[in-house]
Amino acid sequence: MASVIATEPALEPSSGARQVARRLSADRGAVFGLVVVLVFVLAAVFAPLITAISGYGPYEYDLAALDDTGAPRGFGGGISREHWFGVEPLTGRDLFAVVIYGARTSLLVGVAATVVSVVLGVLIGIVAGYFGGWADRVLSRATDVVFGFPGLIFMIAVGAIIPPWFPKSLLIIVVIGFFGWPAIARVVRGQTLVLKQRNYVVASLAAGASATHLLFRQILPNLAATIIVFATISIPGKIGAEAALSFLGVGVPPPTPAWGRSIGEAINWVQTDPMFLFFPGAALFLVTLAFNLAGDGLRDALDPRSEGAGR
């Protein structure tokens, strides 16, 4: 579900926060990305407030906005003063509200799933890297299982098993997060292998420090920069995975708005009502692009050596 970055340049945590901010603000792409991300985050957080101003919630039917065949009346899929982005065909729900609330689903799942895979990946990677031997081999095999297992099939099957009271979004977060850990585990493992040879670690070890102390006090802080960058870069992949699941109809159940589902439905309407595809499609594209730009910028700012290096 996430593409694998085999060679992640080592990051030096030396750069001070101010220096990082300065480099970041000089990167126009990164600034654009951060601003767009911020706009979407605000939209998601204040969605109820925004739709109170725009006048329609995402669950309200407005059949008057549709014609006899269920298609929106008027220009651009029913764009009007009441409905800024027009309405959904067949329901008359306000597309603006649907897109705004869709940001909640995308961002929540994207960020939370990233947290899940980062936590899992860091724990597994650091343990495998530090202890080596059998831990390392188990990691290797476990990675193979996760890579080899079709996540989509897993999602469909588990979605059918879980009881209805279990929140589906939580399930999606766990599943996407779970299938994403091997990539970060590899990177963390590699970095841990390097760090464990460092003088200060070797010295502490000789002085009788416990493994827990070494792992969490000495190695983990030095991995912080890598982890932050990696997390940022992997958010768009997770958002894309959520949208893909929704597109295939196994994401959050309706009526909770989700861009992927809107896109999947809008594809059927594209010849009659192209704006239905445009708005959710553009939102998904923009937010993915923004996270990618911000992630790139952040990496460059934290590690000037890799400036311009792609994903």
């Binding site: 065949t69 269920g70 298609a71 067949l90 009659t272």
Partner: peptide, 9 residues
């Protein structure tokens, strides 16, 4: 439904 709307128009 989508193609039905298109066909009718």
């Amino acid at each position: 439904a989508a193609q039905l709307a298109q066909a009718q128009s």
